[in-house]
């Protein structure tokens, strides 16, 4: 019962772990960033789930509704999404320059080249 009714939180935890694992385990920088994105997305879903009130209507004032869902977490997460996009674009820009400077986007090859000099 508990597991099924709170399934979105389990999804959050699953995505979070997948994302973190990718950031740590993947050697390809692009894949690392994808992992980071999945990790951040899991937090977005978490915030959105928090805002849901059981049986609550959409938070628009209307006749005959007494219970509304909480819109604040959604607004907060809009900001966090923007931050996430900024982070991703900056990371991709860095990867382009890393590719130019090192000729590779594989962590192992970059580190091997650093060890030489």
């Amino acid at each position: 019962m508990l597991v099924t009714s709170l399934y979105n939180y389990w999804v959050v935890i699953g995505l979070m772990m997948i994302g973190l694992y990718m950031v740590v385990a993947q050697g390809n920088l692009i894949k690392k960033i994808i992992g980071l994105n999945i990790f951040q997305t899991s937090v977005f879903i978490f915030y959105i789930s928090v805002g849901k009130v059981d049986g609550g209507a959409a938070p628009i004032l209307s006749e005959g509704e007494a219970v509304y869902s909480n819109p604040l977490p959604h607004v907060l997460i809009l900001t966090a999404i923007v931050v996430g996009i900024a982070t991703t674009s900056l990371a991709l820009a860095l990867i382009i320059r890393i590719k130019r400077a090192y000729g590779s986007v594989e962590e192992r090859e970059i580190q091997a080249e650093e060890a030489q000099c």
Partner: peptide, 25 residues
């Protein structure tokens, strides 16, 4: 190497900031 350092910091920093975001949630 500054690029590589910036990238590593970006990964660590974003994980840190997202942790704070989870805590705030």
């Amino acid at each position: 190497r500054s690029l590589w350092a910036a990238f590593q910091y970006l990964i660590m920093g974003t994980i840190g900031a997202t942790f704070i975001l989870i805590g705030i949630g």
